Amino acid sequence: MYQRILVAVDATPETADVLAAVADLAKPLGAQVRVLHVQTVDVVDGGGAGGIVEEESDSEAKKVVTDAVDKLRAAGVAEVEGWAGETLRSDIPNAVLDQAKDYGADVLVLGSRRYHGLARLFLGSVSDAIVHRAPCPVLLVP
């Protein structure tokens, strides 16, 4: 059924639930898992003296991936690899979808933050954008 699972993680507490769901899915299937973390950057104008603002450092981003890989291995998932990338905040869905295609994912697993009201209007929904364009089934973990 699912032999290649792509799981997108971040540094939020909800990631623990996402990883537990992936372990429950991957172990009995003997599936391969790729842990994906997309480090976001914002470009600011700054009145002509613009620049790039990183939400987290490269070492923090790598730690998110390493911690997730370690948790999946400790949960009994045999084949796990990590991948970290960087993109503009507005391009996160495309980065995840590109990785799903490149990896040949049979299923994509990610969390849903469930923004409501104005937060959803201004922040958008990464999971919503991914679900509507994914090349494979998507498992959203609440």
Rank of each mutant, 00 (worst) to 15 (best):
V41F: 05
L25I: 08
E14G: 12
A134T: 05
D58E: 14
P93D: 08
A26W: 05
V107I: 13
R120M: 15
Y115K: 12
K27P: 02
A49K: 12
V126H: 01
P135Y: 04
Q3W: 01
A129W: 04
R113P: 01
G124Q: 07
T40S: 10
G111Y: 02
P142F: 08
V141A: 04
V80W: 04
R133C: 10
L139E: 05
Q99C: 11
Q39H: 10
E55G: 14
E54N: 09
L118H: 10
E79M: 08
R113D: 06
V107C: 05
E56M: 15
H132G: 15
A20T: 13
A23C: 09
D106C: 05
A95E: 05
L36F: 06
E60S: 12
Y115H: 15
G111L: 09
T12R: 14
L36A: 11
Q39S: 13
G47S: 11
K101Y: 03
V18K: 00
L110F: 10
Q32C: 06
V43Q: 11
G46P: 02
A20W: 00
V18S: 01
T15Y: 00
Q3Y: 04
A68G: 07
A26D: 00
K62W: 05
A61P: 01
P135A: 05
T12M: 09
L123K: 07
V41T: 09
D58A: 11
G104V: 09
G117D: 14
D45I: 10
R113Y: 08
D128T: 14
V77Y: 01
Q32E: 12
C136H: 08
A78I: 06
A105S: 06
G82A: 03
M1G: 13
D24G: 13
Q32V: 03
R89H: 14
V141S: 01
L108Q: 00
A100S: 02
D10Q: 07
L88W: 10
R34V: 09
V131Q: 06
L36S: 08
R73Y: 07
V53F: 11
L97V: 11
A78N: 08
E54Y: 10
L36P: 04
A129V: 04
G124H: 06
G104P: 06
V107W: 10
A21G: 05
G124L: 11
R113K: 12
A11M: 04
L72P: 05
V69D: 02
I5A: 06
R114A: 15
R34W: 09
V43N: 13
V44D: 03
H37S: 01
V138Y: 01
A16L: 08
A20Y: 00
L118V: 12
R89A: 13
A8Q: 01
V96D: 03
M1P: 12
M1W: 07
K101F: 07
E54T: 12
P142E: 08
Y115R: 14
R120E: 13
A8F: 00
R73M: 12
D42V: 13
P28K: 10
R133N: 14
R120L: 15
G47L: 14
A119P: 07
V138S: 07
A49L: 15
M1S: 13
A68Q: 01
A84W: 09
Y103C: 06
V64E: 00
G50Q: 04
A74S: 15
A105R: 02
V18M: 06
L88Q: 13
E60L: 08
G30A: 03
L140P: 01
L108R: 00
A31Q: 04
T15V: 09
D45V: 11
V18G: 07
P142A: 11
K27T: 13
V109T: 06
A20G: 09
